[in-house]
Design a protein around this nucleic acid. Structure first.
Lengths: 160, 160
DNA sequence: AAAATAGTGAGCAGAGTGCCCTATTCAGAC
DNA sequence: GTCTGAATAGGGCACTCTGCTCACTATTTT
């Protein structure tokens, strides 16, 4: 397996490992080895490599915000004075309801994902964002539903 | 613990559990019980309740698309003939590079999250979306970076 | 007062983990 | 052809963790 780039490139066996984990995130190394027809040593070695190579993101992503009392998700497009972008990101990071933000190409500078308890809460959060120095305009869109829930399995299947 | 609504409402102990899990997603029940100062039985019971109540989302969300060979993320706003929305969602679900889609309020009908290998790949995927019956227009924005990586800890901390 | 709920502590058989070592296979380098 | 490194398999061992049960104690609800 080659390593020319910094990031380790996953092969088919890794893919199958991830598929098996998607089926059952709690499955043990023994069970994984069994379903994949590999030895336990191999599975453990590969899992360690996957972890070390940054193939896994934070556990936060598996927590359902609705269970925490934030049933609403909204996307807020934020237009800013671009030279202040770095500072604005730091300011936004202080708002706990902002669960994610992407710097974007195109008309919008930032796409911010927000969770909130209700519409009034969203209104308040939007105000907080607008109050940040350098933020010029926001456009809020409420997510009515996750019509395609986050998934990577179709991509995994294609490499299987 | 009260249960007025269908969804189980998390209390402070649950929150601390989730925090501990965020710190170390692989920590065992024994370790969790130790750090929280609870008995192992209690931790196991609470974890089971959390799982049953749907507090955890799919494992997919923890897989880094970049590790799979999809370093680029884009958000595509899709405008559709609204009466065909349901069918369009089914069609979009067949496109593996679409990792998530939200039905939106506001000008945009759908906000689609896409991962791709490069700009040409994104162009191709956008074409595939446009080719779906009932899709009228798309607006693609490439994510230059996740300036605030997905996080729920600030919200967890606030309930701690 | 009785009942439900959450927690504790103890115990136990079985399963899983982390770690070690060795052997084999295989592809690429020399 | 030979060498080397990587991936894998298989064995083994001490230790930990799990799943489960049961009995007991608080606390809260009814």
């Amino acid at each position: 397996m080659l390593m020319f780039c910094t990031m380790y490139s996953l092969d088919k066996t890794d893919t199958k490992l991830l598929q098996a984990l998607s089926d059952d995130p709690r499955s043990t190394f023994v069970a994984l080895a069994d379903t994949l027809g590999l030895s336990r040593n191999t599975v453990q070695a590969r899992m360690k490599r996957l972890e070390d190579s940054g193939a896994f993101l934070g556990f936060d992503r598996r927590i359902n915000p609705a269970a925490l009392g934030y049933p609403l998700t909204a996307f807020i497009e934020v237009h800013v004075q671009q030279k202040r972008l770095a500072q604005i990101v730091l300011d936004l990071a202080l708002i706990p309801e902002i669960v994610q933000a992407h710097g974007m190409s195109g008309q919008t500078d930032l796409l911010v994902r927000v969770v909130c308890t209700d519409a009034a809460d969203l209104f308040r959060i939007d105000g907080t964002i607008l109050a940040c120095d350098g933020v010029e305009r926001t456009e809020t869109s409420l997510a009515m539903g996750e019509v395609i829930p986050y998934r990577l399995t179709p991509l995994l299947d294609r490499r299987g």
